[in-house]
Structure formats: structure tokens, C-alpha cells
Amino acid sequence: NRMHLLCPMNTSPHVNPHKSGHGIWEEFSHSFTPAVREVVEFAKRIPGFSDLSQHDQVSLLKAGTFEVLVVRFASLFDVKDRTVTFLGGTKYSVEALRAMGAGDFLTSMMDFSENLMGLSLSEEEMSLFTTVVLISADRSGIENVNSVEALQETLIRHLKGLITKNHTNESAIFTKLLLRLPELRSLNNMHSEQLLAFKIH
């Protein structure tokens, strides 16, 4: 009888114990679907994305949506206040979430948020970084790797140019930003394990 769904894409971590697993999932799905649609709309605006095959567009989005959402919603994880804000608008302390069952995954999400927000990127830089997160040729199921790779290289080049231009005395920022990519992959894997645990419950 799992009583909590500890994802800030939910309106609240509390779930109705009288609801079926399917009902809980339906409610959760209703909460996160608009954010997923926004990721798709964002992808469509990436120059060159629509030129990829529909199969590769879907593969990139399937593999990368969680990571894009982590970047977009990193500010929900407030490291200074040690709180997480859920989509319903309520803040929960890390301690409260731990008492509800949150473990290492929450720690990793807080660490990521601290690392990313600490770079103090502009909206434009964050947006371009998000395109680099999404357009990644090594995702599983990509058919035309060369096309995705070419687009990926273009986006990384633009990101490097923008970061170099905006942070002339902070040459390490671009490297630090690229180091967030494997961190996101790791979070993605951890998230899949959390989803599996949810399904089992």
C-alpha cells in the first residue's frame, strides 16, 4: 500500500489510499502530460529536428524527455532551503520527503540541481543546453545516427560559442556543463528503477 508518489511532476506526494494503482497512475499522468507536450513542442522548434525521420524524433524524445524535464524543473529542487516544490505549488522539506520514503535518488536530484543552478546560466544558455541534452546520437533505437550526430555537433558548437561569448573569464563553464550530461544519464537510469518499483507496488 504505497501512500506516496514522490515525484514533483505530481501535484502532491500524497496519494489516495482508496484509489486503485491504475487510478493513481491516471491522476499522475494527467499531471505530467502537459510538461511532456511542452518538451515535444520545444523539440519541434529546434532547427533541424523536424528534418529527422519521425522514427528518430520519437526515439530521441522517448529517451530524453525525462532528462529535459530534469533540466527544466531543476529549480523545483531548492538546495539552499532543502525543499522540493511539487506541481501543485506546495513545498516539502527534504526531511519530510525522506520520511515518506525518498532515498538516494532525491539526494542525486538535489546534487544535480545544485550543480546546474550553480552555473547561473541565462535562459538562452539553458535552452541551448536543453537541445544538446535531447539531440544525442547515442540514444537507443536511432536509425540515422549520422543525421542526429550532425545536428548534435552543430548544437554543441553553438552552445560552446554562446558560453564562451557570455563567460569570457570562466572557461571551465562549458566543461562543467558537458559534465552534467552523464549525470543526467545516471538520473535517467535511477528514475527508470523508481518507475519499476512503482509498477511493482
Binding site: V40, V58, K62, L195
Partner: peptide
């Protein structure tokens, strides 16, 4: 559970959002 995106309905949401784009695209 090798493909969480498909199992959780994510692929369906993605496909529908992408299809909307195709329908809106002028020929």
C-alpha cells in the same frame, strides 16, 4: 520493463504531440 517510455504511455503522448505538428504543417 526494458522500455519505460512505452510502458508508461509516454510514447503515446509524444506521438500524438508530434502528429499534431504533421497535421498542421502546410503542404
Amino acid at each position: 520493463f526494458s522500455d519505460p517510455a512505452s510502458n508508461l504511455g509516454l510514447e503515446d503522448i509524444i506521438r500524438k504531440a508530434l502528429m499534431g505538428n504533421l497535421e498542421e504543417r502546410p503542404e
